[in-house]
Design a protein around this nucleic acid. Structure first.
Lengths: 233, 233
DNA sequence: GGCACCCATTTTGTCTACAATCTTAGAACC
DNA sequence: GGTTCTAAGATTGTAGACAAAATGGGTGCC
């Protein structure tokens, strides 16, 4: 029965997303903040905007709901999921374990060239903060995260992290736009890179842990200093 | 704009699944092993079996693909995803971090009654193994996992774990059906319960780690002793 | 004035039909 | 005999239409 499928490799994983044009467009719009938390996402409207049928949009929304970006209420529609501070902290707590694993794996297996590249990235990070270029710093930060995931060669962890990351983009953003915060976090990032380049898995895991715990603290104090501004719409 | 949705609580999460009848049926069938890995899942056929339209089945398959239970190849259909040994180990590695977190959280906040209940569960586990009732032992085991997740009160971690668990059911099953293995793992489980009941987060996290590392070892040696039997169909 | 009920509107959930794509088998050709 | 092209079959992707559910406003009643 069906000879063609039998022989396909179990590697694929990523390329499977081909026609998910609409899904990607909506996801990007949410992540970019074009659609704000709690905003309603009416299937017909979105189909109109992206010139796709309702069936396509519907599938996209279900997909995004599975990713945790969208909330669906039966017979009542979809809306952009609002990630509360508590949830954001939960996400960071989970990331401690998973990113720690990635960092450890990377430290254990990194190649010489990749290690060198990370070293350069380290310099760039420090430089961007010194120049006060927070946008560039945020970009390099994201790149570091992605790179460590890739280098860990851990598909499962990468999947989990990608999902978690997408959900908490908004909260991350609030933090990374603070110059004060950048000066602290850049040191922590440098420490992570140092441990990885030194090929010390335990130290890398610990460095990630320290960093994320620090982020949690920062989020907490940020929220107490400027009390709940839940009105996003 | 839209007053009804604005006030909905961000808790829901679970009850959102109402009409997912078909999704649940297919998921159960896969987890129970009714549909074996690599088996093709043709939308029209499934619609016939579950007396639903293709559109409904299609959505169910996309949902399951997002959960990692089903693999979709564009224009070529869906099939039950085969979790390789490497992937199963990856999943366990991730679980170390996340379940460790849950255990630590639970240990830090467990109530007296819940602690007592866990103590009783501990006795039942030991008893079931002593009597050689592996089916009962497996059931209790699942319950322990679920319970620790619940008690941790950590929605994000629970979500991640639920997803990972569903994927690796098959491999878990292979292990838990070995009497030899049960005798080892029951001690580890008892250690986890002890640490949680003693309200020692660090010890609980460590006990989980030890246990899962031991499972990884067991899986590895199991696969070397009975070399690749990839023919599931 | 407030409360319960009912109906119109909006939006989702489901089904059927059509188009696009891929696979497979067979025939023509070298 | 083997290879390439072509066409038929099977299966997925998309669109549009209908049915079901929930919301919101309005009317009647107390």
């Amino acid at each position: 029965m069906s000879s063609a499928l039998e022989s396909a490799s179990p590697v694929a994983e990523a390329e499977a997303a081909v026609d998910q044009r609409v899904t990607d467009l909506i996801r990007d719009a949410i992540i970019r903040g074009e659609y704000v938390p709690n905003q309603r996402l009416v299937e017909a409207d979105l189909g109109d905007v992206f010139s796709a049928s309702r069936a396509t949009v519907r599938i996209a929304l279900l997909q995004l709901a599975a990713e945790g970006l969208v909330e669906r209420l039966p017979h009542r529609g979809s809306r952009v999921r609002a990630i509360s501070l508590e949830e954001a902290i939960e996400i960071l707590e989970v990331r401690i374990g998973v990113e720690g694993l990635c960092a450890a794996k990377t430290a254990a297996s990194i190649s010489d060239e990749d290690a060198e590249a990370l070293g350069r990235l380290r310099s760039q990070l420090i430089e961007s903060v010194a120049e006060g270029d927070l946008v560039e710093y945020a970009r390099l930060n994201r790149y570091l995260d992605v790179r460590v995931r890739e280098l860990s060669n851990h598909a499962t962890a990468s999947d989990v992290l990608a999902r978690l990351h997408a959900q908490s983009v908004r909260h991350q953003f609030k933090l990374s736009s603070r110059p004060q915060r950048a000066k602290i976090s850049v040191l922590e990032h440098a420490a992570i890179i140092d441990a990885v380049v030194a090929r010390d898995p335990a130290a890398a895991e610990q460095a990630v842990r320290s960093h994320l715990l620090s982020v949690i603290d920062a989020l907490r104090s940020l929220s107490t200093s400027e009390p709940g501004a839940p009105a996003d719409s």
